[in-house]
Design a protein around this nucleic acid. Structure first.
Length: 462
RNA sequence: UCCUCAGUAGCUCAGUGGUAGAGCGGUCGACUGUUAAUCGAUUGGUCGCAAGUUCGAAUCUUGCCUGGGGAGCCA
């Protein structure tokens, strides 16, 4: 295997002969020779290759080496006399694998809008910004696994297809092998799901949490990291129909331990990415959002603010700001409220805990005041809710009571309730929207630009 | 789904009732160890789609489609 360009730029020895493989970023033709900049996605910078006019078939090769063409170039590594790069390659043999007609190749040597790049999703990974995004995204994934593995968490592969429609986290996509124009029907005309593949209605998962709880009851500390699906007709810069979610779940853990983990987790990831992708992070800070590096450092250096929901409402009430949605105890906080707290008041991530029970899910642990539950949201500037978690209700009688109050079908949850019958224990966990994390970290304004193949309403082209 | 703004050359946009424009890109040439090279010339259009008003519509009206921003829902 040949060296990646990142390695070549870092450690190729002067006067050694190497082979560069990649795609042409720019070509600059001079009279006696040409400069070709080649990149392979391993790093932001390309490598400069000099092709001398003496090279066999020079005119034909140069004619093909337009932006986007694929090429292998063998040559001698030399110190670069020009500014802007330490080394360059004096080509001795060049193979063009595939040209890219400049009349029709959509990527130009200039800035493109992200809206336009979304229309050429199959090519946009070749751009500086999307390249940097994908490398940071990769580093985030690695950091997540490394963080949990170092702590002894078990990576639990929770199902993508689920038959329980009681997860309560949003609209679901149906999964069926019926001919949807002609599904099997009962005598009364309704669709007969007993005849469907699973013998019952099935859906794409909206959360792996309930299954993660199952795994935590055997393995103590577990996490999920996989795709999640929401069918809401939601069109915003922070929603996807298919996104990746990270969900740790810890037995013998309360809401305080949950918050501690969330904070340590985010700090670890930011640190890892700053160490492994410094050029990409500098690029974001310089070209995308000037607060990127400051935000990262802020997370690494400072504790998150921690307040209760009740305190948050009090802060909003005395803020003297007029909100579109009026503030009073019991409301579900709106985006404008969360953003005020995170962006203006605290100017850093904050964790809000102990929300009113009526606005939270059935599985969250009821507090002693019997009005609030042990929920926690991590709110960050610009994104809003990055993490949502809770201590889970481990007491069977109270959980059954809550399920009844919220009119949820308890029969479907028999296995979930069994966890409280057989060796129940206080436990807690949270869910993190992976793309929101990448968005927050890179400063990218639209979540569709931090995933290679975004899925959103009317968008599944690539 | 709601509110709002937009859709004109490959890209980014100007043109707001009277002959469709600029910059970038592409092409050709010149020049130069260049680096989003530079300079000159040149190329390029079903003005989102459909209907309507008008002597005349990119421009005004209506409907639809698509995209951006915001909201809701959520991670």
């Amino acid at each position: 295997m040949t060296m990646r360009i990142k390695e070549i730029l870092k450690s190729a020895e002067i006067q050694s002969t190497i082979t560069v493989e990649g795609w042409v970023k720019t070509k600059r033709e001079l009279k006696a020779f040409s400069f070709i900049e080649i990149s392979d996605g391993s790093t932001m910078d390309g490598i400069q290759v000099i092709i001398d006019k003496d090279l066999a078939d020079y005119d034909n090769i140069i004619k093909q080496l337009n932006t986007g063409a694929s090429v292998s170039a063998e040559g001698l590594v030399v110190e670069s006399p020009g500014k802007g790069q330490r080394i360059e390659v004096q080509a001795s043999a060049v193979t063009v694998h595939g040209g890219a007609d400049p009349e029709t190749y959509p990527l130009q040597k200039k800035r493109h809008s992200f809206e336009f790049l979304r229309t050429i999703g199959h090519l946009r990974g070749k751009t500086n910004t999307l390249g940097a995004v994908m490398r940071v995204r990769n580093a985030c994934s690695t950091a997540i696994h490394q963080f949990f593995q170092e702590k002894g968490f078990l990576w639990a592969h929770t199902p993508i297809i689920t038959a329980s429609d009681c997860e309560g986290a949003g609209e679901m996509f149906a999964v069926t092998n019926f001919d949807i124009a002609n599904p099997k029907r009962s005598k009364d005309g309704t669709i007969d799901y007993a005849e469907d593949f699973f013998g019952r209605p099935a859906y794409l998962t909206v959360s792996g949490q309930l299954e993660a709880e199952v795994m935590a009851m055997s393995f103590k500390d577990v996490y999920t990291f996989g795709p999640t699906f929401r069918a809401e007709n939601s069109n915003t810069s922070r929603h996807l129909a298919e996104f990746w979610m990270v969900e740790p779940e810890m037995a013998f853990c309360d809401i305080i331990g949950d918050q501690d983990l969330a904070e340590e987790f985010l700090r670890y990831i930011f640190k890892y990415v700053l160490e492994t992708c410094p050029e990409d992070m500098e690029f974001f800070d310089k070209r995308i959002d000037k607060t990127v590096l400051g935000t990262a450092q802020n997370i690494i250096d400072n504790d998150f603010a921690r307040i209760t929901y009740t305190e948050a409402i009090a802060l909003l009430e005395k803020s003297n700001k007029t909100f579109e949605f009026p503030v009073e105890w019991g409301i579900d906080m709106q985006s404008e409220h969360e953003r005020y707290l995170a962006e203006e008041l605290f100017k850093k991530p904050l964790i809000v805990t102990n929300y009113p029970k009526d606005i939270k899910a059935f599985y969250m642990r009821l507090n002693n005041d019997e009005k609030t539950v042990a929920a926690m949201d991590v709110l960050v500037p610009k994104i809003g809710e990055l993490i949502g978690g809770s201590q889970r209700e481990e007491r069977l009688d109270i959980l059954e009571q809550r399920i009844k109050e919220m009119n949820i079908e308890a029969d479907d949850l028999w296995w979930y309730l069994d966890l409280r019958r057989f060796g129940t224990v206080p436990h807690a966990g949270f869910g993190l929207g992976f793309e929101r994390l990448v968005q927050f970290m890179t400063g990218m304004a639209n979540i569709r630009d931090v995933i290679p193949f975004p899925r959103s309403p009317l968008n599944a082209e690539f």
